Amino acid sequence: MRRLAPYQSGLWLAEYGDVRCQLCRIYRSTPQFHLPQNHSSAIPPNNHSFFTKLRQHVNDRFNSGLLCSHCHHSLAWLPKPFEVDIAAGTVLSIQAATYYDYPIRQAIRAFKHHEDMTKLPLLLHVLRQLPRPQGCHRDNSVIVAMPTTNKRLVKRGFDPVSILAAQLSKHWHIPLWHGVERIDNTVSQQGLTRAERLSNLVNAFALIEIPPVKRLILFDDVATTGASLQALGRTLYSQSFSLVGLNSQSTSRYQLSAYALAHGSQL
């Protein structure tokens, strides 16, 4: 049996080792087959896979889900999408799975800042409420996770956005693309005003290769004002066309959309 990564162990422990609701921590969790299913686009797994059989065995044994029915229903309504400008006459639509409020806020902070992997199953449950972009599939789309700086990666020791994006990639069956890097001279966005966020993100990203497809799905964990996704979108919109030598009339060939785990104030 192959060795599980730490975050994978956290997934199993939290998902199958605790019968309390992972959100409110008060009521018992409800088996997933008792909960109404959201618009999932996942392809049925390979029933002959070892890990599929092991998961089914553990699921049958514990027969519990992640959330109580009340908390599950509280996450059933997606926030209204909001838009940010990325070029003259061009906007980027950002859809979040939930709001950055208590108790999701505490779960995200525990995962991001304290590497609490037991919060990951809850965050993935929330993330899976996002509908896959219409018309997008593995042959015409890629997911672009918000890149982090090398300095921040060394300091934190892991990249929470990449972990979430990898799970979203598996859920939607759309590959990740790592063609953008983040410059090390930017600071954390947390606690900054919108004007400070925009100023901090000027020239924060650089394209290192041409996008392989025309549909680019941007992803971040928390979209507060949308400034980070806006800056990333502007980089993809402008630099990708200069790399391939396209003129402004051809830029409509690329379609950009953005998704986030949560939307709201970080204060």
Results as ranks from 00 to 15, higher is better:
Ser250Asn: 14
His178Cys: 07
Leu232Asn: 08
Gly226Ser: 13
Val244Leu: 01
Val222Leu: 06
Val161Gly: 05
Arg182Asp: 06
Val187Lys: 12
Val161Ile: 08
Asn203Trp: 01
Arg152Tyr: 01
Val161Met: 04
Gln167Trp: 03
Gly233Ile: 06
Leu207Gly: 11
Asp221Gly: 11
Val154Thr: 02
Leu207Val: 09
Leu192His: 11
Pro212Asp: 14
Asn247His: 11
Val180Gly: 13
Lys155Arg: 08
Ser199His: 13
Phe241Ile: 01
Thr224Pro: 09
Thr149Asp: 06
Ala204Thr: 02
Pro211Thr: 07
Thr225Asn: 03
Glu196Phe: 03
Thr225Asp: 05
Tyr237Asn: 02
Pro211Asp: 13
Asp221Pro: 04
Arg152Trp: 01
Leu236Cys: 10
Leu198Tyr: 02
Arg215Tyr: 06
Ile174Leu: 07
Lys170Ile: 00
Pro160Met: 07
Lys155Ile: 00
Ala227Gly: 12
Thr186Asp: 09
Ile163Leu: 14
Gly179Ile: 02
His178Trp: 04
Asn247Phe: 02
Glu209His: 06
Asp221Val: 00
Ile208Pro: 02
Asn185Pro: 00
Gln167Glu: 15
Val202Thr: 09
Ala206Trp: 00
Gly191Lys: 14
Gln167Phe: 04
Asp184Lys: 00
Asn247Ala: 06
Val187Ile: 06
Leu176Met: 11
Ala206Leu: 06
Val180Pro: 09
Ile163Glu: 10
Leu229Ala: 08
Ala166Glu: 13
Trp172Leu: 08
Gln189Asn: 14
Gln230Lys: 14
Asn200Phe: 05
Asn200Tyr: 05
Arg215Ile: 02
Asp221Met: 05
Arg152Val: 00
Thr148Ala: 13
Ser248Glu: 15
Phe205His: 06
Gly233Trp: 02
Gln230Gly: 02
Thr225Gly: 03
His171Trp: 10
Pro175Tyr: 08
Arg215His: 15
Gly191Ile: 09
Pro160Leu: 06
Leu201Asn: 11
Val154Phe: 03
Arg215Ala: 11
Arg215Phe: 02
Ser199Asp: 15
Ser162Arg: 11
Gly245Glu: 04
Lys214Tyr: 05
Ala231Glu: 03
Val202Met: 09
Thr186Glu: 07
Thr186Asn: 10
Val187Met: 07
Thr224Cys: 09
Phe158Arg: 04
Ser228Gly: 15
Lys151Phe: 00
Val154Gln: 10
Leu168Ala: 12
Ala195Lys: 15
Thr224Leu: 08
Thr193Glu: 12
Ser238Thr: 11
Leu176Glu: 11
Leu246Gly: 12
Val154Cys: 01
Gly179Val: 03
Thr224Glu: 13
Gln249Pro: 01
Asn203Cys: 08
Asn203Pro: 02
Leu168Glu: 08
Ile217Tyr: 06
Gly226His: 12
Ser238Lys: 09
Glu181Lys: 12
Phe219Ile: 00
Gln189Cys: 11
Pro160Arg: 07
Ser188Ile: 01
Thr148Asp: 10
Phe219Gln: 03
Gln167Cys: 08
Leu243Glu: 13
Gly233Glu: 03
Glu196Lys: 13
Gln189His: 11
Asn203Arg: 13
Ala206Tyr: 05
Ala231Cys: 05
Ala206Gly: 11
Gln167Ile: 00
Asp220Glu: 11
Gln190Val: 14
Phe205Lys: 04
Thr224Arg: 09
Leu232Ala: 08
Val213Tyr: 03
Lys155Ser: 12
Ile210Arg: 10
Pro211Arg: 11
Val222Thr: 03
Val244Pro: 01
Arg215Ser: 14
Val161Pro: 01
Ile174Thr: 04
Phe219Asn: 05
Gln249Met: 06
Leu236Glu: 10
Arg152Cys: 02
Pro160Thr: 02
